[in-house]
């Protein structure tokens, strides 16, 4: 899901930075500094998840953990992802610094959407219901991210429908895996450390 340097047009880069700066500013305001270590933990998980490769047929992809980060951190997921993506660009050469705004927006927005839509549902007392909701949120976050990446590639004068179609289909297996991982993570946290989801 990381878009590399030199792929996006100026318009797409500006749009990405505008969205990221706005959402990060809101995120920083809403971040509770007493829970900053939790933010760092989720940011680290997101940072490391990109190293977990999943082989799908002739191609492969990596975990993103968009939904767990969003569901647990809420608005703080934007600054958490910005830091993680910055370090990924510097240390792993994933994405890049110029395209950091677009990449943060592409991955931060799905995290925020699943927080707004599923945030209360996954905190439900009914374990089965919250597990199913966590699965849906995990899968949905990946698909939203793929669609956003397609839109950014489309803005950059590339064949939008082709790019969006390829990205959409390529991310379906990852969406299912992310759904399962998210469901397990949320169920585990609810059982072991419910205060983590507070």
């Amino acid at each position: 899901m990381h878009i590399s340097e030199g792929v996006l047009s100026g318009t797409a880069l500006i749009a990405g930075w505008a969205g990221t700066v706005t959402c990060t500013a809101i995120g920083l305001r809403k971040t509770d500094t007493s829970k900053i270590v939790r933010t760092a933990l989720l940011s680290s998980s997101f940072f490391l998840a990109s190293l977990v490769n999943i082989r799908i047929g002739p191609s492969s992809t990596h975990l993103s953990l968009l939904a767990p980060v969003g569901l647990i951190l809420g608005w703080s997921s934007f600054p958490a992802m910005l830091v993680a993506l910055f370090l990924q660009a510097i240390l792993f050469h994933f994405g890049g610094l110029v395209v950091l705004g677009a990449n943060t927006f592409i991955m931060g927005t799905p995290a925020l959407i699943v927080y707004v839509v599923f945030g209360k549902m996954i905190r439900s007392e009914n374990k089965i219901f919250s597990g199913i909701m966590a699965f849906i949120s995990g899968a949905l976050a990946v698909m939203i991210g793929a669609c956003l990446a397609g839109i950014f590639l489309g803005i950059s004068d590339r064949n939008f429908f082709e790019a969006a179609k390829i990205l959409f289909y390529a991310h379906i297996p990852l969406a299912l895996i992310e759904g399962i991982v998210t469901s397990f993570m949320i169920m585990f946290l609810k059982r072991v450390s419910p205060e983590f989801l507070s």
């Binding site: 500094t33 007493s34 900053i36 270590v37 933010t39 760092a40 933990l41 940011s43 680290s44 940072f47 490391l48 190293l51 830091v83 993680a84 370090l87 990924q88 240390l91 792993f92």
Partner: peptide
């Protein structure tokens, strides 16, 4: 790659602890 990964995680936690200490 492993060293870079450890460095990244270490940086994030150190930043978090720095903010917490200042707070």
């Amino acid at each position: 790659l492993t060293v870079r990964a450890v460095l990244g995680v270490s940086l994030m936690f150190n930043i978090a602890l720095l903010i917490r200490r200042r707070q």
